[in-house]
Nucleic acid binder design. Structure first.
Lengths: 343, 343
DNA sequence: GCCTGGCACTTTCCCTCGGAGAGTGCTAAC
DNA sequence: GTTAGCACTCTCCGAGGGAAAGTGCCAGGC
């Protein structure tokens, strides 16, 4: 669908209408557009322009005598070609910077904090997802016995990212062979990315002594969950309360189904990080969302990087959201996060 | 307030009324009580009994011509002295048992799963809180270098409980002295409970060589967060959606403020585990709750044990909840959890 | 003397109705 | 092509009225 053929006036009206609707959450009438945005045209003219826009499917009527409301398609056009970037205010920037750049040792703490600040500043729901480890270069492996049959696997990746998994062995393992296995693993695997390791691990460990086979196998099993970025503890939510206040979630069913998605952390993580694959800000609007439950929401995401690995942050809100501002905000936060995590 | 002087009839009426109200969520009229529970007395008699109960502050009127509703005080009496334990159905038990007793290596996974099952079976909000480490007997300490200045501290406690904290050193530390420090710590501290360690650590480590002082100090700093059971990752929520469906949370403000509390994980953890101190089921009703935001809720909790250490599980719902059933459920789950975690 | 049926009274709930308000869409004039 | 005017449509809100539910009290009965 090419909308390049929209007249200048049509573009102007659509933009004004969306801007107005975003702040008021009420259907916008022709008078409001004509007067408030001083387009120098009369309400009647606006009305006829609106009819055109409606025919193109960019706006709709809730009912005959109400003002107009943008459709998802309308928002899409607005986002793609008519919204300017809206800079954050100094105080917003300050606040975000202060929280993200405070010093934490653990990545999770930063992500948790990021989710919280962004939520307060944006007044929306914020999701931050830990870096996907599969592109990370392995620094070291440690196998620590913590109980008779329990082994803690510690994977350290460049840039201070760490992940641990607790394994249960079938029989008790002695410390010596554990250390030996760890040595073997370190020797053979460090310097590789976890993705590479996962693919080629059978090959690489083929010629190791059979004595360690059992432990190696155990280690193999663990990599799956180590690499799984959709694990619930790899995700942080902030601002759940904010969605309750949004007028669009007056509708109980909508609220319910959204909260349902939030509880299914795995699902949510997939949804958000799928968008974080490509570089830069990515905006998903309403029906474009794969999950039916979220089709009254929009999602603004950006990847961030921690060295070689990438994670995603996202803001979720009703389709009527301040795209320009939120995009700037996500972009800013992602940049800060990348800086902090890559230093 | 002694209510032992309640007549048999008054007790009967109150009980019937509460039972009825719990299932319908509607004010209960005299007719409903008289007929449905076959007390062999007429509605008129019930009415006059109700007046007595109202004078005692056990039930109220939403308005003149509505039925009666129990007050917090009424629920309290009911819970303390007139509700029989309500056994779980076989299928409920099965379901809970299956999920809790599935084999997980990590305690967090069990807790997460427990929260989820209990939420589905109880149709309420469930909170599970990880064991409080301070009573745990230290098994081993490990200090693992994961990046130039980053050290992963691993505390293993009896019964396979593990906690890790990432520390940031001021300058890079070499592996040798790290190992040495770990050895010292293990030697001096293992076999003690973490609580003892925390209290007496200065003393115990006084005569160590000054070379390690820096590392030891770092370790000391970490114990605070290691022992903090209110850390967000030590808590699991299940069934957030369920509260949205409760008729008592139609009121937006109530819903909002409850969700607010849920987001403040630290707060919630304190609230719930405060009740888990004493042995056995503990029930907190409405206004008895410390936090104002939660005064329209009730809380049913029980501690569970993993060896020597204890954690808490709790169910949160509106004051109009099925206390007897939920108490049985929490009790059952706590017992299973204790079994699983202590073996 | 306690229980009960009867009855008047109160309050909510729901439906309807009508007027005010907002906004459209069309048409005719500029 | 733009605008003013105007009839029309639809929602929103408050008033009014009847039904339903339940109470509180009183007088009579076992």
């Amino acid at each position: 669908m090419a909308f390049e053929n929209l007249s200048e006036r049509e573009r102007l009206v659509l933009r004004s209408l969306i801007n107005h609707y975003i702040t008021t959450a009420e259907p916008v009438g022709s008078r409001a557009v004509a007067q408030k945005y001083r387009l120098g045209i009369s309400p009647a003219t606006v009305r006829s322009t609106m009819q055109d826009l409606e025919e193109m499917g960019l706006i709709t009527h809730p009912h005959t005598s109400a003002g107009r409301v943008p459709t998802d398609k309308g928002y899409r056009l607005y986002v793609d070609s008519m919204m300017g970037p809206e800079a954050l205010t100094a105080s917003e920037e300050d606040r975000i910077r202060r929280e993200i750049c405070a010093d934490y040792a653990a990545v999770e703490d930063i992500l948790e904090q990021t989710a919280t600040v962004l939520a307060t500043v944006s007044k929306q729901l914020v999701v931050t997802i830990a870096p996907r480890f599969d592109k990370g270069v392995l620094n070291s492996v440690n196998l620590i016995p913590v109980a008779e049959k329990k082994i803690l696997v510690i994977l350290a990746v460049k840039h201070g990212l760490v992940r641990t998994v607790l394994l249960e062995a079938e029989s008790s393992v002695d410390v010596k062979s554990l250390e030996k296995t760890a040595d073997v693993l370190n020797e053979k695997l460090s310097g590789l990315t976890l993705g590479e390791i996962k693919e080629s691990i059978d090959l690489r460990l083929k010629e190791t002594s059979p004595a360690d086979a059992r432990l190696i196998k155990l280690f193999l099993d663990s990599t799956d969950s180590l690499l799984d970025f959709t694990e619930p503890d790899q995700m942080h939510l902030g601002g759940t309360t904010n969605i309750v206040d949004q007028p669009e979630f007056r509708d109980r069913e909508k609220l319910r189904s959204l909260i349902e998605v939030l509880e299914e952390k795995k699902l949510l993580a997939e949804l958000v990080s799928a968008k974080g694959i490509k570089e830069g800000i990515s905006i998903t609007i309403g029906k474009e969302m794969e999950r039916g439950e979220m089709q009254s929401c929009s999602l603004v995401t950006s990847p961030y990087r921690a060295g070689k690995v990438r994670g995603t942050i996202g803001i979720i809100g009703p389709t009527r959201m301040r795209y320009s501002k939120l995009a700037s905000m996500v972009e800013y936060a992602a940049k800060l996060l990348s800086d902090v995590l890559s230093r």
